[in-house]
């Protein structure tokens, strides 16, 4: 059991990295990676939301959709649950843990439309993961996202002082960097 979870942990965070090999959550990956500290903030917020969302989505799937035989509604249900959940987390943090809200609050609304959250919920269903396995998978995926966004932010900070050809400034050079990172992450495929 624990071995299975460990395999999922490594597979989802490194081997099938959510951004670099599945292209989910690309918008925040490219958009919030200018500085390492904002990237870390985004990463932590994503870990928080995805872990919570995969638990809630998994529970709803197991206890509501499957018994009533309405699994074909999964896309609609998941997207609404995620949107509501993010709103709820935002209100909860604002009211009860203001210090955490101050550091994560900016990132929370961004995550609603982050396709990685919905992607994880759907993958969990597709691969027939139970609730616990699903939560581990969600957590690992989010950790993979955090790893890659922080690395990219570090590279971009260094790159800010480099002389880059005019038409490659901005997005193009970031995409080239992401491509090189993706090659590096291909190396992990030998791990499992």
């Amino acid at each position: 059991m624990i071995k299975d979870l460990l395999v999922i942990l490594i597979a989802s965070s490194l081997v099938n990295n959510v951004v670099l090999s599945q292209f989910l959550g690309l918008c925040p990956f490219l958009g919030v990676s200018k500085k390492t500290n904002t990237a870390t903030g985004m990463g932590v917020a994503v870990i928080f939301v995805i872990t919570l969302a995969s638990a809630v989505a998994g529970a709803i799937y197991q206890f509501i959709l499957v018994p009533f035989d309405i699994t074909y509604l999964q896309t609609i249900v998941f997207i609404l649950v995620i949107a509501a959940l993010v709103q709820f987390v935002e209100m909860f943090l604002k009211k009860f843990i203001p210090s955490l809200y101050q550091s994560l609050g900016v990132y929370l609304p961004l995550i609603t439309t982050n396709c990685a959250v919905l992607g994880v919920a759907l993958t969990n269903v597709q691969k027939n993961y139970g609730i616990l396995t699903g939560v581990v998978n969600g957590f690992a995926t989010a950790v993979g996202f955090t790893i890659s966004i922080v690395i990219l932010a570090g590279i971009r900070e260094k790159m800010a002082h480099n002389d880059i050809p005019e038409s490659f400034r901005g997005m193009p050079i970031v995409l080239v960097t992401a491509g090189l990172m993706a090659i590096a992450f291909c190396g992990f495929s030998g791990l499992l």
Binding site: L20, S21, F23, E166, S167, F168, R169, G170, M171, P172, I173, L175, V176, A178, G179, L180, A182, I183, C186
Partner: peptide, 22 residues
């Protein structure tokens, strides 16, 4: 056709877009 190729193709595409814009 692997993941890195997608980033490279898009990088070239955005570079062309930048050039046109400039």
């Amino acid at each position: 056709i692997m993941a890195p190729g997608a980033f490279f193709v898009l990088a070239v595409l955005t570079a062309i877009q930048n050039k046109v814009k400039i």
